[in-house]
Simulated assay, not measured.
Amino acid sequence: MDAFILSRVEHGVMTLTLNRPDRLNSFNDVMHQQLAECLTQAERDDTIRCLMLTGAGRGFCAGQDLNDRNVDPSGPAPDLGYSVDTFWNPLVRRLAKLPKPVICAVNGVAAGAGATLALGCDIVIAARSANFMMAFSKLGLIPDCGGTWFLPRVAGRARAMALAMLGDKLSAEQAEQWGMIWQVVDDAQLSDTAGTLARHLASQPTFGLGLIKQAINAAESNSLDAQLELERDYQRMAGRSADYREGVSAFLSKRPAQFSGK
């Protein structure tokens, strides 16, 4: 079986590379299954403290491989909801719930579900030549893979509506200016910049980083009172962690902290 997901673990970082460059890393069912297996490893392995997602070749991801969803005009209409429910929705939920930072290094075009997949990661760094495109409207579809949830939150309602309805390309630099992604770097610097950030996060108090991630995600739907109570509960959990004890000890001793992620 072809390896459509390349996986490497070094220095506490699991790097997952989408590997169908001849198809701009568009997803078929086997690719989904291989990515799911890698996420299971990331969830279970405590030595993995940061996840980085990127693409092979000249694109990050063109979303769903339409060859797998080809419509026969004389046949029954396809059930695209089944595909979303079986593959894309579980992927979005797992990345959101993963108690570890998830970095996306967008190395080229991110279109359709490839764009919303990137925006669903915790920190997005893009090559200067990269672009984002909500291509769903070109096919008479709606943004999925969390697109209608992420877009208004990262771009605002007006921009989200136009991006989704027009399906125009958005440059990486414009996405950065709009606050949709964290950083744009020169193409030649993308791998080093994203890798350095991933290794840094993997060396930090990742138990606390996981709580930060869950708290910020919860704030999107919580009332202020509910969020204050969640902060109290999470702070209680963080204060009981080995990372907190190490952080305080290192601060008082004026030495670099050695966090374990526990």
Rank of each mutant, 00 (worst) to 15 (best):
M1D: 12
M1C: 08
A3V: 03
I5V: 12
S7D: 11
S7F: 03
E10V: 13
H11W: 01
T15Q: 13
T15F: 06
T17P: 07
N19K: 02
N19I: 00
N19R: 01
R23Y: 08
Q33E: 15
Q33C: 08
Q34K: 00
C38N: 04
D45V: 07
C50K: 00
C61S: 15
D65P: 04
N67H: 14
V71D: 05
S74D: 14
S74K: 12
G75W: 00
A77N: 10
L80W: 07
S83C: 09
T86L: 09
T86C: 09
N89G: 03
L95D: 04
C104D: 05
C104L: 09
C104N: 12
G112V: 00
T116Y: 05
L117G: 11
L117K: 06
S129N: 13
F132P: 05
F132H: 07
M133T: 07
A135T: 09
S137E: 05
K138Y: 07
G146N: 10
G147A: 11
G147T: 02
G156V: 01
R159G: 01
A162T: 13
L163F: 15
A164V: 05
G167I: 11
D168G: 13
D168Q: 14
Q177P: 09
G179N: 12
D187W: 09
D192H: 11
A194V: 03
T196E: 15
L201K: 06
T206Q: 01
T206K: 00
F207T: 13
F207P: 04
G208Y: 01
L209W: 01
L211A: 04
Q214H: 15
A215N: 09
I216Q: 14
A218H: 13
S223V: 11
E229W: 00
R236V: 10
A238S: 04
G239N: 10
S241Y: 03
E246C: 03
A250G: 04
A250E: 02
S253H: 08
A257Q: 02
G261N: 02
G261Y: 00
